[in-house]
Design a protein around this nucleic acid. Sequence first.
DNA 1: CTTGACCTTGCCGCAGCGTCAAGGTTTCTA
DNA 2: TAGAAACCTTGACGCTGCGGCAAGGTCAAG
Lengths: 269, 269
Amino acid sequence: MRIGEIAALAGVTSRAVRHYHQLGLLPEPERRPNGYRAYGLRHAVELARIRRLTELGLGLAEVKDVLADDAGRELVEVLEELDGDLARQEAAVRERRARLAELLDRARAGELPPEGPVSPELGRIFAAFGPSDSPMAAKDRQHLALFDSMIGNGDGDGGTDGRRGELLAALRPLADDPEFVRRVEGMYRRLDELADAPADDPRIAPLGAELAAAMPAELLRLMSEGDAEQAVRGDFGEAFLGDFAPAQAEVVRRMIAALTERARRADGG
Amino acid sequence: MRIGEIAALAGVTSRAVRHYHQLGLLPEPERRPNGYRAYGLRHAVELARIRRLTELGLGLAEVKDVLADDAGRELVEVLEELDGDLARQEAAVRERRARLAELLDRARAGELPPEGPVSPELGRIFAAFGPSDSPMAAKDRQHLALFDSMIGNGDGDGGTDGRRGELLAALRPLADDPEFVRRVEGMYRRLDELADAPADDPRIAPLGAELAAAMPAELLRLMSEGDAEQAVRGDFGEAFLGDFAPAQAEVVRRMIAALTERARRADGG
DNA sequence: CTTGACCTTGCCGCAGCGTCAAGGTTTCTA
DNA sequence: TAGAAACCTTGACGCTGCGGCAAGGTCAAG
């Protein structure tokens, strides 16, 4: 048999067969006078065996090991390890599909926020909050999405939902309160109006105070806790303020100052 | 922020971030005077978004496409295609795990044939047949395993078990018949004895006749039908006979001749 | 001043082949 | 009997998503 024939027999390509030769999985057969490889039944048997193993999901190196030592010992070990791998893979794929399904649901309903796929709960909160034609609201959503990703990284794998859960618990009641939502929308609009204002605009002070009043203490606590603390307090904080126009940044600075002050007083007295 | 900081924030490595830059997924930020990349919040937001997408299983090229066109149109398409992919993957992994589990069961029971993992049913037939200390029986098992693989390749994906089913249906009753199994074992031994005999050994003719008598017509029919036909009739046939010692090959040749004759007679009358 | 932890660019490596390239052989067909 | 089609040969690059190393430069702390 020539290489194409044995390959077709085993259901692989000629290239794959040559690859197995290169890796030493399959011995090189004799050559015909013209240089063609001349395969016999033995090779077909071996090739079929290789293919059965690879179809199970073994890597070629593992196949080689298994073929190498005649005892079935090694095979069992390899198979057990492989099963563990596959179990993990299956779980991962299933989780991805679950998230995908949820995303697709929302996407088809036209509810996809331009921030891309965030966690479902956050998505609902996004939907409730802010008119999408406010640049400030859009930016805020981006920041929230980022923060959501960050705390998603922080915790381990299992456990309950931890810090992300707290975040959502803090946000959800606000999103469900129409009165609060209206207030926030008004503030977004007023922040938008400060986009081109100088840093000493008179509208800054009252807006900062109002923001501080509206902002739940829980949020600030979450942002200055845990793994993200150093990030938020360090260069990240600067980056955060740098993302706003001067007047807007000033508002945020005042809000933070007011909140910090409030927390200090609550702590001290 | 420097690259390590933003990377830690998003839960990726610096290397990955640079990779995203190279691929154009993430815009290169300004540089500090010392050449370090200086990231701002915008980059963190984008990076987090990239990571959310890759975590879903999108390839970097697809992520780029999704980020490119602002409309959510493309995203939906990509996600749908991805879901299809994942569904296929999941099914494939599940099937592999099922076969693995079956294999591991048999392996732990010490019933693994040295031919490697064959289809479960064939494995049971192997277990029933032939003492493993007979070289000829071993070779025969190899051939059967090869044939099993071949017909496994031939048919499509779905459907009923097709030709493999027929093969097993033909073999199973034989394996379940202790009388038949005893006969086959005797023949294996006699074939073994011919390993070093010349091609005109007097034991050849009777053994060939007996093999032909024992061989079910169904098997021959299966081997000369369907996709494998050309292979079996062509070079594969030579390879098959070439795998035996001369006297043994002679026995097989006679058996085939007798079976062909029998089939011709049954067909004609 | 040294040490250690960062950063820079650039390049090789991984799995399992697919896919040219640039030839040579055999076989079918006109 | 020529030419095309369909095989074969070796060699080499390409793909994915980075990891890891080399050979430096930079910066803050002890």
